[in-house]
C-alpha cells in the first residue's frame, strides 16, 4: 500500500515541477504581490514592518489559490482519476497524497521565499522566523481546503476564478490565526503558542475535511 502512495507522490511532484514550472511561477507571483503592496500603501518602513506578516500571508494565500486549478484538472482530463478509482485505491488517500505533492511543489517554495521577502518588508529576525514557521504550518491547510474547490470546479472549463471565490471564505480562519500568531511573536498581546496551536489544529482539521470532501466531489464529477 505504501509503495503506490510513494510512486503517486513522486509522479505528481515530477509533473508539477516539470510541466509549466508551476512552482517557480507561484513564487514569482508571491514576489509580485509583495512588490506591489508598497506602491499601494507607500514606502513607510514602519508601516510595512507592522503589516508585513499580513502581506506575506495574503500573498501566500493568493499564490496558493492561483495554482490550485491544476490540482485535479489534468488527471481528470486524461482519465487518470478514473483509473485510480477502478484500481480500488481509496480516493481520499489519493487526494491527500496529491495535495501533499502539490504543496511540496508550490507551497514549500513560498515558505522558503518568505524570509527573503521579509527583508523587503523590514521584518525583524524574530518576526521573519515566526512568519516562516506559521506559513510552514498553515499553507498545507490552504492547499487542502483549496482541494475542495479544485474538485468542485474540475468539470468547469474556466473554474479558476470561481474556485477562489468558493475557497476564500473557508480559508479565513487559517489567515486569521496565521497572521495573529506571527503578530503575537513580535508584539505580544497574547502568547505565541495559543494562536499557533490553533493554527496547527486547523491544518489537521483541513487534512481530514479536505480529502473527504474533495473525494466526494470528484466521485460525483466522475459519474
Amino acid at each position: 500500500m505504501s509503495t503506490w502512495a510513494i510512486v503517486l507522490f513522486q509522479r505528481d511532484l515530477r509533473l508539477s515541477v516539470r510541466v509549466g514550472g508551476s512552482a517557480l511561477v507561484g513564487v514569482l507571483f508571491f514576489l509580485a504581490v509583495v512588490t506591489v503592496i508598497p506602491f499601494g500603501v507607500g514606502p513607510d518602513l514602519n508601516l510595512l514592518s507592522r503589516i508585513g506578516p499580513a502581506i506575506l500571508w495574503i500573498g501566500a494565500l493568493l499564490a496558493t489559490l492561483l495554482g490550485l486549478d491544476r490540482l485535479f484538472q489534468a488527471d481528470r482530463d486524461d482519465g487518470t482519476i478514473d483509473l485510480m478509482l477502478m484500481a480500488g485505491r481509496p480516493l481520499e488517500l489519493v487526494v491527500l497524497i496529491k495535495c501533499l505533492a502539490h504543496w511540496v511543489a508550490t507551497g514549500l517554495p513560498l515558505v522558503v521565499a518568505a524570509p527573503l521577502l521579509g527583508v523587503f518588508l523590514n521584518l525583524e529576525p524574530a518576526a521573519m522566523a515566526a512568519v516562516t514557521l506559521t506559513l510552514l504550518v498553515g499553507t498545507p491547510a490552504l492547499t487542502l481546503i483549496g482541494a475542495i474547490g479544485a474538485a468542485l470546479t474540475v468539470t468547469l472549463r474556466r473554474g479558476g476564478l470561481l474556485l477562489a471565490v468558493l475557497v476564500v471564505p473557508l480559508a479565513i480562519p487559517v489567515l486569521i490565526f496565521g497572521v495573529s500568531s506571527a503578530d503575537a511573536a513580535i508584539h505580544d498581546p497574547v502568547p505565541f503558542l495559543t494562536p499557533f496551536l490553533i493554527l496547527c489544529a486547523l491544518s489537521l482539521i483541513a487534512a481530514v475535511i479536505g480529502p473527504i470532501a474533495s473525494a466526494a466531489a470528484l466521485r460525483f464529477a466522475a459519474d
Binding site: 475542495i148 474538485a151 468542485l152 468558493l166 471564505p169 473557508l170 479565513i172 480562519p173 486569521i176 490565526f177 495573529s180 494562536p195 490553533i198 486547523l202 482539521i205 475535511i209 470532501a213 466526494a216 466531489a217 460525483f220 464529477a221
Partner: peptide
C-alpha cells in the same frame, strides 16, 4: 446539486470555526 451539497456541508462544518476565529480576531 451534488457538487453544491458537498460545498454546503464543507461550509457548514467550517461556519463555527469561521465564527470563532472572527470573534478571536
Amino acid at each position: 446539486g451534488k457538487a453544491a451539497a458537498v460545498l454546503t456541508l464543507a461550509g457548514a462544518l467550517n461556519l463555527p470555526v469561521i465564527k470563532f476565529s472572527v470573534d478571536w480576531w
